[in-house]
Design a protein around this nucleic acid. Sequence first.
DNA 1: ACTTGCCCGTGACAAATGTCATGCCCACAT
DNA 2: ATGTGGGCATGACATTTGTCACGGGCAAGT
Lengths: 203, 203
Amino acid sequence: MIRLLLADDQALVRGAIASLLDLEDDLEVVAQVGRGDEVLAAARASKADVALLDVEMPGLDGIGAARQLKAELPSCRALIVTTFGRPGYVRLALEAGASGFVVKDTPSSQLADAVRRVAAGQRVVDPALAAESLAAGPSPLSTRETDVLIAVRQGNSSGEVASQLHLSEGTVRNHLSSAIGKTGARNASEAARIAAENGWLLA
Amino acid sequence: MIRLLLADDQALVRGAIASLLDLEDDLEVVAQVGRGDEVLAAARASKADVALLDVEMPGLDGIGAARQLKAELPSCRALIVTTFGRPGYVRLALEAGASGFVVKDTPSSQLADAVRRVAAGQRVVDPALAAESLAAGPSPLSTRETDVLIAVRQGNSSGEVASQLHLSEGTVRNHLSSAIGKTGARNASEAARIAAENGWLLA
DNA sequence: ACTTGCCCGTGACAAATGTCATGCCCACAT
DNA sequence: ATGTGGGCATGACATTTGTCACGGGCAAGT
């Protein structure tokens, strides 16, 4: 019997997936949480074998939760289940020690199989997504460019970013300009959006 | 026996909700589609009593699908089930003839009840969401401001918007400025984002 | 040691974006 | 008919944002 932990901030989706997986004879949902920072404790308490983690969660994102599990409770394997197949996310997830990555577009019938494969110690990654992730490569952004984009993404103007990072406005704009070029964006906010979508602003 | 149609572009979520609702003795999922523009035909073919519609779908959004149903197949009631409780969406959904509005945050146990109430001819709207929607009021944006924001949202610069709408650049920037004031945003792209989140750019 | 390449930082300049005062037109109330 | 208010449109002006050429530091390869 495979013991499952479900983590997703949308209660309805979480409950629905639970009922889907409970139909399987060899699977058992033993815990459900709605926040990333509750995953570790719940996994420990429930002795889960596999944790299904959504990426978008309050408190801590699914990738971070997977990292915690890998470090603190390696007996519990992490399977990331997310809405968007952002290329960079796959890379980050695997680096964080996740055992698998599934997008919510996949047929529901395949989820149980993915869980079984992960429980058996295999890696599970959507092949198309894996290829895309490989092609996209790691973040092309330098450290400063990443810093600046993160700050811009919070909604700060370049002046504010400058004082937050103790830089001159010109420097900030320079990094932004460079980031705009690298992302193919047309302005700073678009660059921040693109970088975020590729997972370049998480680590 | 209540006959259900499920429309959601995420196959996994769709399947999971199907298995959740199939557990109920008086509910039966008779059709599933992944695109908004397939809803009407599927509802007709399957003689569905209630359609569960996600808002974000390719082809046609859930609100549009609800409008089609209301016009062409009024015997099938629409229940919108969506990720975000954008205030304006509730208003739009009800104006489009939907019978209910549920966010994916609600406990999964309540979904079946919502379906039953809708099937019985009642309206179902999350109370907190309804209040927020009422408080937010209708769109404060004028026609031109809406046009301009929609164009900006596609990723056009103000110059491009100007030529698309046959206006001078100054005029476009003027409408934008006004929209920025009304939305409380700090620049054009933020204004577009806020307006979209409130459902002000759909109708 | 020297070159090469990259990241970082800066200021000057150019282009875009946002704000303002102003006028036109239309609907509505006086 | 006559104000009055709002949406629409415009150009001038101020501010913000993006681009460029330049120089310093640092690590890797020669």
